[in-house]
Each structure stands twice: as structure tokens, then as C-alpha cells.
């Protein structure tokens, strides 16, 4: 082993610390998740979702850095792994905004799509399918095997 991968502090203490951090982050995520159930305000929901995503990234960092030991590898290896993953920034931005734009375009220019997505359906008992209820006007579809 070279001087760069030498033992850093007490490994067991580090494992304990990271375990506690991961558990606490998960518990905070769950608390936010429970809290969000009763909230209807779109803005607040979005803020909570953003917080959950940040906590998720923090958890990912702790798993990769400490459990997978990447933080204690040479910088060369760290860069080889982390730099290509930066593609995800573009990947997520481009695709999610494309999805959002597609919805806006359809809502604006496709009256059928908009009308379809505004029809309220009743919550049926177990075993019925929402897709059938959508075309509820035609009776035979109700009995049709799917």
C-alpha cells in the first residue's frame, strides 16, 4: 500500500458515524414524506420535494465516499468516476424540461388530451381498473377481460 491509501483514523468509528448519518438522513426524509401527505399547497410541496432530493444526494455522497471508499482513493480514480457522472446534470435537465414542455404543448394544442386529463373518475373497489373507467360510457368494456 502506498502512502496515499494509508489508514485514516479509526475505520470502525468512521463506519459508525456514517451509519448514524445515513439513518438520520433517512428518518428526516420519512418525516418530510409523512408531513407532505396532508399538505395541498403546491409551492410548499415543491419545496419539501426539493429538500428530499438534496437529502437523497447527501445519502448518495456518504455511501459512495465512505462505504465504497471512494473518498480515500487517489484523486485520479475519483476523477475518472465522478467526471463522467457530470453528464447526468445535462441528462436530467434536458429530459425533465422536455417532458414538461411536451405536457405544456399538449395542454395548449391538444384539446382531447386536456379534456381527457380533466375527467374525474370515482375511486372503485379493488379489482377494477381506472383505464376501463375512462371509457365508462361503453358498457361492454366493463365486462371485457383485460
Amino acid at each position: 500500500m502506498s502512502e496515499n491509501t494509508h489508514e485514516h483514523g479509526d475505520p470502525i468509528a468512521e463506519i459508525k458515524k456514517v451509519t448514524i448519518i445515513l439513518s438520520v438522513l433517512t428518518i428526516i426524509e420519512l418525516i418530510l414524506g409523512f408531513w407532505m401527505i396532508g399538505i395541498t399547497s403546491e409551492g410548499l410541496r415543491l419545496a419539501i420535494k426539493g429538500t428530499i432530493v438534496i437529502l437523497m444526494l447527501a445519502k448518495a455522497f456518504y455511501i459512495v465516499a465512505y462505504f465504497m471508499h471512494l473518498k480515500h482513493e487517489l484523486k485520479n480514480l475519483i476523477m475518472t468516476i465522478v467526471v463522467p457522472l457530470a453528464l447526468f446534470i445535462w441528462f436530467i435537465t434536458a429530459f425533465l424540461s422536455d417532458g414538461n414542455s411536451f405536457r405544456n404543448l399538449r395542454n395548449t394544442y391538444d384539446p382531447h388530451f386536456k379534456a381527457q386529463s380533466e375527467i374525474k373518475v370515482e375511486k372503485k373497489a379493488e379489482g377494477t381498473h381506472a383505464t376501463e373507467e375512462k371509457e365508462g360510457k361503453s358498457e361492454p368494456t366493463e365486462t371485457k377481460k383485460d
Partner: peptide, 18 residues
């Protein structure tokens, strides 16, 4: 509950068909 690939028994959160 009737959920599988191609089957979705759950309606949307806003009460519309999923």
C-alpha cells in the same frame, strides 16, 4: 390489488383517470 405491467387500478391524486 390489480396492479401489474399494463394494469393500473390506482387513480390519479387529483381524482382523474390514470
Amino acid at each position: 390489488e390489480g396492479a401489474w405491467w399494463g394494469m393500473n387500478p390506482f387513480i390519479n391524486a387529483d381524482g382523474t383517470a390514470s
